Simulated assay, not measured.
Amino acid sequence: MRNVSVADVSSYLAATGWVRQPEGWRGAAVWVHEGDHEILVPGADYLADGPRRLKETLSLLARVEGRSVEDIASDISSPMADVQWYRAPIVPMDGEFGLVDAVTALNSAHAALSAAARAALDGPRPVFDGTAPKAVRDLLARVWIGPIVPSADLLTVRIPLDGENSGDPPLARRTLTLLQRATLLLREASAEVRRTGDISVFDDTVRDGVSADLCVALARFAGTDPGTRFEVGFRWARALPSEVPARTVVFEAETGTLLRRVAHRLRRLHRESASVTGLIGTLFDNGGEDRFRVHVRGEVAIGDGEPRGSIWVRLPDEAAYDVAVEAHRNRTLVRAAGTLKDVNGRRELIATSFHTVVDDRSEES
Rank of each mutant, 00 (worst) to 15 (best):
P150V: 07
A88E: 01
L186A: 06
A73R: 02
T196H: 06
A73I: 06
N165F: 10
V100T: 10
I159A: 06
R67L: 14
L171R: 07
R137Y: 03
V83K: 14
S190Y: 14
A117N: 11
G98P: 03
S68T: 15
V100E: 13
P170E: 10
V64T: 04
V127Y: 11
A132V: 10
V193I: 11
L154S: 03
T177Q: 09
A102P: 05
D162P: 00
R142H: 07
A120T: 13
D129L: 15
A102Y: 07
D122H: 12
A189P: 01
K134M: 11
V136Y: 06
D82H: 03
P160E: 03
R125Q: 15
G197W: 13
T196S: 13
S166Y: 08
V136D: 12
L154D: 03
E192F: 03
E164T: 12
A132P: 14
G197T: 09
A132D: 15
A112G: 06
Y86M: 11
D129V: 14
M80Y: 14
M93W: 02
T177K: 01
R125T: 05
A112N: 04
L154K: 05
D101Y: 03
D75S: 11
W144L: 00
T183R: 06
Q180H: 00
I76T: 01
P126W: 08
A191L: 15
L184Y: 00
A182S: 15
A102I: 02
T131N: 12
T177W: 00
A191Q: 15
G66A: 10
L154F: 09
D153G: 11
A111N: 08
V91C: 02
L176T: 15
S77L: 06
A141I: 00
A119Y: 05
A116Y: 05
P169I: 04
R118P: 13
S78T: 14
A117E: 12
Q84A: 13
L185M: 05
A120F: 12
E164Q: 15
L113C: 10
M80A: 15
R174W: 07
P169N: 07
A116P: 07
T104G: 00
G146H: 05
V103T: 12
A135Y: 03
V103W: 10
R194L: 13
P147E: 07
P150N: 06
S108D: 04
T175R: 09
L178N: 09
V149G: 00
S166K: 04
L99H: 10
N165A: 14
G123M: 09
S190D: 12
V157M: 09
P92S: 05
P170G: 05
L139G: 06
D75Q: 11
F128A: 09
S78L: 06
G146M: 05
R142K: 15
S114T: 13
W85I: 02
R158V: 03
P150I: 07
A141G: 08
R87W: 02
L186E: 05
L113D: 08
R87V: 13
R195L: 14
V127A: 08
D129Q: 13
G197L: 11
P133N: 12
A191W: 08
A117D: 11
A191G: 12
P150K: 03
L140H: 09
I148H: 10
A88S: 15
S114W: 01
V143M: 13
S74W: 06
V103K: 13
L154P: 00
L99W: 07
N107R: 14
V69Y: 02
S190W: 04
D168E: 14
D138C: 01
R195F: 08
V149I: 02
D138E: 14
A119H: 09
H110E: 08
